[in-house]
Write a protein that binds this DNA or RNA. Sequence first.
DNA 1: CATCTTACTCACAATTTTGAGCGTTATTGA
DNA 2: TCAATAACGCTCAAAATTGTGAGTAAGATG
Lengths: 127, 127
Amino acid sequence: MKKETSSNSLNEQFLFQSCELNSALKVISGRWKAQIVYSIWSGNDRFSLLKQELSAISEQVLSRQLKELETQAILVKIPIPETVPAGISYRLTSKGIELVPILQALCNWGKQYPEENCIPLSACVTG
Amino acid sequence: MKKETSSNSLNEQFLFQSCELNSALKVISGRWKAQIVYSIWSGNDRFSLLKQELSAISEQVLSRQLKELETQAILVKIPIPETVPAGISYRLTSKGIELVPILQALCNWGKQYPEENCIPLSACVTG
DNA sequence: CATCTTACTCACAATTTTGAGCGTTATTGA
DNA sequence: TCAATAACGCTCAAAATTGTGAGTAAGATG
C-alpha cells in the first residue's frame, strides 16, 4: 500500500509535476514491463507465449505486470471467442505502439555503450 | 547490499542478458536520475544549481545520484580550479549527451498521453 | 578561534517493489 | 470423477530503493 504522504511519495509527485518524462519513465521502468511491451509487439500476444519468452517470470508476476500495463493503457486485453478455455489476446494500444521506437532507441543506446554481454531474446529489440 | 543469488537479482540479470534495453532502463530509472541528466544538459552544472532546480531533493540524495551517474559514465566531475571552497562542475559524457534525445522523446510521449497535469521546471525537456 | 560554504560520506530507517505460495473459475476430454 | 489448461486474485515475505541524521575536509572570513 502506498503512503501518499511519505517523503518518497511526495518527491515522486514533485517529479511527475516537473516533467512528463518522469511519469513516462515510471510507467515503463517496472521489472518486466519494457520487455513485455516489446515481446507483445513482436507477436507474443498470448499469456502462454509471454511466459515462454520470459522464461524466468512466474505466472503471478506476469499477470500483475500485464494488469499494470493495462491500467496505464499501454495494452488492452481482448477475449478470443470460441477458444476453450477462453483465451485472451494482448494488444498494444497506440500509446503502447508509440513507445516501441523509444525502447528501440534505448536498446541501441545501451548497445553503443555496453557494460555486459548481450544474448538477445528472439524478441530482442534489434534481434 | 545486493544479494547476487536472490530470485530478484537473477531475474534482473536474465533481463540484462535478454536485451540492452533493460540495463539501459535501469541506468536512468532511478528516482532523480533522468531529471538530473536533463538539468545538467540545460546548464545546471553545479551541485548548488541542481539542488536549487530539484528543490525537493536533499543534498545527500543528490550526491548519491550524481555518484551513481558518474559510475555509469553518464557524467564526469571536473574540479573548478581557483574556487573556494573548491567547486565541481558536472559535465555529461557523450554517453550522457546521447541519452538526452531519448529522454525528450519519452517526455513527448508522456505529454501526448497525459494522466496528470504538468508544470514544467525551467529545465523541463521541452520547456 | 568560531563559523560559513561546497560537496560530499556513512550508517540506518522508512517505503516501495518484487517474488512465492496457494487458491479460483470455467470448460473440455478420458 | 479426475486431470489439464488459461489466466488470473490474494496475502505475505524478501529484497531493493529512497530518505534522514550526523559528521567531514579545506580554505575563507570575522
